[in-house]
C-alpha cells in the first residue's frame, strides 16, 4: 500500500505498564475507507492501542503513523482529521445537545458560524433533530452514544477511532449505531473500532485483528478467518458430561473444543454427530454456521468473555 492510501500503520509497537506487557510487537495497517476492527476480550490491549493512535499513550518501542503523521510526535496535527468515540461517554451533562456540539467545535478552532452551519446535518445524522435543546442528562443511553458520534464528526474527520462504540447499549440502540456507521463507511470514512462483540466485528469490519494479551493472534477478513480456521458447521452440545460426549462423537468431528460445560464440535457432516447423540436425555444440541467466536475459541482454547 502506498502512503496516501494508508490511514493507520503500526510497526513493532510495544507497551508495558509496571512490568506487565499490554501491547506486544504489534503491527497492522488500515487502508483509507476501510473499517478495521480490533477484536479481543477485556484486557487484550484494545483501548491502549486506540489511545496510542491518538497520541494519548506513547509506545515503548515501534512506529505509529496516523494519516501520514508520526504519532505521538505530531499527534495533535493528526487529531485535526480524527473523530473519537471514547469507551465511556464524556459529554457535557449540564449542556444541551446543541451546546455540546458548539463547545466541541470550538476545540477545533471552528467559528460559531461554521459550527452552526454543520449542526443541523449532524443532528439529523444522529437522529437527534427534536432533542437539539434538551439537556444531555435527559437523554437515553443510545441517544448519548449517537450524540458522541455526531460530536466526533464535527471536524469532518477522515478517520474515526471508536473504542467499544456499542458496549452497554440495548440491541435496538446498537443496531441503529451500526446502521449509522455503515452510512459513514459509504461516505468514504475510515473507521477503526475496538470491540468484544463478535457480531459487531463480523457485521461491520472489512478486516480485523484478533488480539489476546496484547498480541495479534490472527488478522484478515472475517469470512476468510472463519473459513480458514473453522470451515465447517458447528454443533454446540450442553447438558451432559462433555468429556464422555467427546469420546462418543470424536470419529465424526474434525475438531472438538470444550469450554465450561459446553462442547463445540466442528464437523463437515453434522447429521452424523446428531445421530450419535439421538436418544440421550437432557442434552441440548444446537447446530449453526461457524462465526468469529469459534475462531477465537480455536486460536486461544477459550471462549471470549462477554
Amino acid at each position: 500500500m502506498s502512503m496516501s492510501t494508508v490511514a493507520i500503520d503500526l510497526a513493532g509497537v510495544r507497551k508495558s505498564f509496571g512490568g506487565r506487557t499490554i501491547v506486544d510487537e504489534l503491527s497492522f495497517s488500515v487502508a483509507r475507507g476501510e473499517c478495521f476492527g480490533l477484536l479481543g476480550p477485556n484486557g487484550a490491549g484494545k483501548s491502549t492501542i486506540a489511545r496510542m493512535l491518538l497520541g494519548m499513550i506513547s509506545p515503548d518501542a515501534g512506529k505509529i503513523m496516523v494519516l501520514n503523521e508520526p504519532v505521538p510526535a505530531r499527534a495533535r496535527v493528526a487529531r485535526m482529521r480524527i473523530g473519537v468515540v471514547p469507551q465511556f461517554d464524556n459529554l457535557e451533562l449540564e449542556f444541551t445537545v446543541r451546546e455540546n456540539l458548539l463547545v466541541f467545535g470550538r476545540y477545533f478552532g471552528m467559528s460559531a458560524r461554521k459550527i452552526e452551519a454543520v449542526v443541523p446535518s449532524l443532528l439529523e445524522f444522529a437522529r437527534l433533530e427534536t432533542k437539539a435543546n434538551a439537556r444531555v442528562s435527559e437523554l437515553s443511553g443510545g441517544m448519548k452514544r449517537r450524540l458522541t458520534l455526531a460530536r466526533a464528526l464535527i471536524n469532518d474527520p477522515h478517520l474515526l477511532v471508536m473504542d467499544e462504540p456499542t458496549t452497554g447499549l440495548d440491541p435496538h440502540a446498537r443496531h441503529l449505531i451500526w446502521e449509522r456507521l455503515r452510512v459513514l463507511l459509504a461516505r468514504g470514512k475510515t473507521i477503526l473500532l475496538t470491540t468484544h462483540f463478535m457480531e459487531e466485528a463480523e457485521r461491520l469490519c472489512d478486516r480485523l485483528c484478533v488480539l489476546e494479551g496484547g498480541r495479534k493472534i490472527a488478522e484478515g477478513k472475517p469470512d476468510v478467518l472463519i473459513d480458514e480456521h473453522i470451515g465447517c458447521n458447528v454443533v454446540e452440545i450442553y447438558g451432559g458430561d462433555p468429556h464422555q460426549l467427546r469420546e462418543l462423537i470424536r470419529p465424526h468431528a474434525r475438531h472438538i473444543e470444550v469450554s465450561g460445560e459446553t462442547l463445540f464440535c466442528y464437523a463437515p457432516y453434522p447429521e452424523q454427530v446428531r445421530v450419535q447423540l439421538r436418544g440421550r436425555a437432557g442434552l441440548r444440541v444446537l447446530q449453526r454456521s461457524p462465526n468469529l467466536e469459534d475462531v477465537f475459541l480455536r486460536l486461544t482454547g477459550r471462549e471470549m468473555e462477554k
Binding site: 491518538l54 494519548m56 495533535r76 487529531r79 485535526m80 480524527i82 473519537v84 471514547p86 465511556f88 464524556n90 459529554l91 457535557e92 451533562l93 466541541f104 476545540y107 477545533f108 478552532g109 471536524n155
Partner: peptide, 14 residues
C-alpha cells in the same frame, strides 16, 4: 470524574 479533559484531549488542543 467528568472526563472533560479527556474529551478535549481528543481534539486539536493539548
Amino acid at each position: 470524574a467528568k472526563r472533560t479533559w479527556e474529551a478535549i484531549l481528543s481534539t486539536e488542543l493539548t
